[in-house]
Write a protein that binds this DNA or RNA. Structure first.
Lengths: 221, 221
DNA sequence: CGCGAAATTGAGGATACTCAACATCCGTGG
DNA sequence: CCACGGATGTTGAGTATCCTCAATTTCGCG
């Protein structure tokens, strides 16, 4: 899906832009963020939207008592934070070190008039987000803990495509808040999958080896 | 939000179109659907997207064993079923009798070039859907049963705006499959809210009287 | 090597589910 | 107009899943 954006002449400098310092181009500026640094907060004026160059971003909403729901993890190539009206509707933070290109939100409105290709790309990116959100609602509303974890691992594997080994850049608490579980349940589900021989957890705990992808797919429901 | 679409010159005949028979205009054709009639199924080629004139539509996904997640109810004025690529990602059905305007999906792609106003409206509608989906993920992942029901009632009241009385056009099973609960839990939560004096359930069971909206807002979390 | 953070494991408990019985509603037909 | 019957909704009892609280282990980093 996002290959469209990668290949698009709309973001000419995006992929080519240097990563180590803020650089500018007519359309976007690159900036680096440190681990756990806030990119924008829910309610902030939506001056920019972003494209991930490297690293992973989490976007989430909070309830007043602190309960958190991470609606998505954004991997390199993903677009997030685009709004047509006013304010951001969730908070965005860097997981580990991250490099982003920021584009002015204003350009969304003007783009429909004078930059149809950009408009089309933003619409496509928004529809990808919506499709993922719908799939995730099915997970949150109707899947068991182990089904949630299996789905999560497979989804991440598809998007990261690094062979049979999946890197988990985020902490257990992030996974839990994404899947509507607690860290303990995530941990138990992973252990259970390992005992069934479906995955293997390196001592590292930052990665997962998918030993039996077909079994995982069956467990995904 | 959708006032934009209502007021838009892009859909000139939409509001004016007769409701009782299929009529055509250059941009959309109106059609009526009976209770529980399927509008399109998940996987169907996305030839049309729709705007609700009257009635309520449910869109949902199924797991292989029949578990269902209703991602949204679509009320008059709402747009649903817009896809940039190929197939519909969920099934849509009429709840009770419904009247819809269908627009060719093809127009989405061409619109970015020759109908910027339409492109803008579709993007806005998609972003409204995404915003609702994100809010709903917070509900599904992190709210208790009674918080879910309170949130649902308030949300419906906001969108239907019929004073203190909210019509529930959908059955308990639909509410349950939307909130990630069972019908029994929905029923118990409603009874509980009634016992607390926050709402009142007419013998009808097709409506709810919001007696203490502030209390409901507090229960929403 | 030792400390703090993160993850795992365990025991017990709460929330929501399952299964079941009962009540109510509503359309149908006598 | 009322009685019947299926569908829908409510209520209850018991249970399973996941959560909470707590202890322990492991990891990452000085």
């Amino acid at each position: 899906m996002l290959a469209t954006l990668d290949a698009s002449p709309v973001f000419p400098r995006a992929s080519a832009t240097r990563n180590d310092a803020a650089t500018r181009s007519p359309l976007g500026s690159t900036r680096a963020y440190r681990k756990d640094e806030e990119i924008f907060a829910e309610g902030d004026d939506a001056e920019y939207f972003y494209r991930v160059l490297s690293g992973v971003v989490r976007t989430y909403k909070l309830l007043s008592d602190g309960r958190r729901q991470i609606d998505a993890f954004h991997l390199p190539g993903d677009i997030f934070g685009a709004e047509t009206h006013g304010a951001h509707r969730f908070t965005a933070e860097a997981i580990g070190d991250v490099s982003l290109v920021g584009y002015r939100s204003r350009s969304i409105e003007t783009a429909t008039l004078d930059n149809p290709a950009l408009a089309r790309d933003i619409l496509a990116a928004t529809m990808v987000s919506l499709a993922r959100a719908q799939e995730h609602m099915l997970l949150l509303g109707r899947k068991s803990a182990s089904e949630k974890v299996a789905t999560f691992l497979l989804g991440l594997a598809e998007r990261m495509t690094s062979g049979g080994i999946v890197d988990l850049p985020m902490a257990r608490i992030d996974i839990a808040d994404h899947l509507g579980l607690t860290i303990e349940t995530v941990s138990r589900s992973l252990t259970q999958l390992e005992r069934r021989g479906v995955i293997s957890l390196p001592a590292n705990r930052r990665g997962v080896v998918l030993k039996d992808r077909d079994a995982l797919k069956r467990l995904r429901a």
